[in-house]
Simulated assay, not measured.
Amino acid sequence: MATDSVPWRGVHHLALVTADMDATVRFWHGVLDARLVTTLAIPAFRHYFFEVAPGNTIAFFEFTDQPIESFAKPAGVPYPKASQFDHLSLHLPDEDALNRMRDRLKAHGCEVTDVIDHGFLRSIYFSDPNGIALEASWWTIDPTGRPVDYGDERLFADADPVPAVRELRDHGRLERTVATRLVDGIIEDLGREGITVERSTG
Rank of each mutant, 00 (worst) to 15 (best):
N56D: 09
T57V: 07
T57C: 15
I58C: 03
A59L: 00
F61A: 07
E62I: 00
E62F: 01
F63V: 01
F63D: 03
T64R: 08
Q66G: 11
P67Y: 03
P67Q: 00
E69W: 10
S70A: 14
S70I: 12
S70W: 05
F71Q: 12
A72W: 01
K73D: 15
K73P: 11
P74Y: 06
G76R: 05
V77L: 11
V77K: 09
P78T: 04
K81G: 12
A82T: 11
S83P: 05
F85A: 00
H87E: 05
L88M: 03
L90R: 05
H91W: 11
P93Q: 06
P93S: 07
E95F: 05
D96S: 14
D96T: 15
D96Q: 15
A97C: 02
L98R: 05
N99M: 14
N99R: 15
N99L: 15
N99A: 13
R100M: 11
R100N: 10
R100F: 02
M101N: 11
R102D: 12
R102H: 10
D103C: 12
K106L: 13
K106R: 15
A107N: 13
H108T: 07
H108L: 06
G109L: 02
C110I: 13
E111A: 15
V112E: 05
V112L: 04
V115F: 03
V115K: 01
V115I: 14
I116H: 13
I116A: 13
D117I: 02
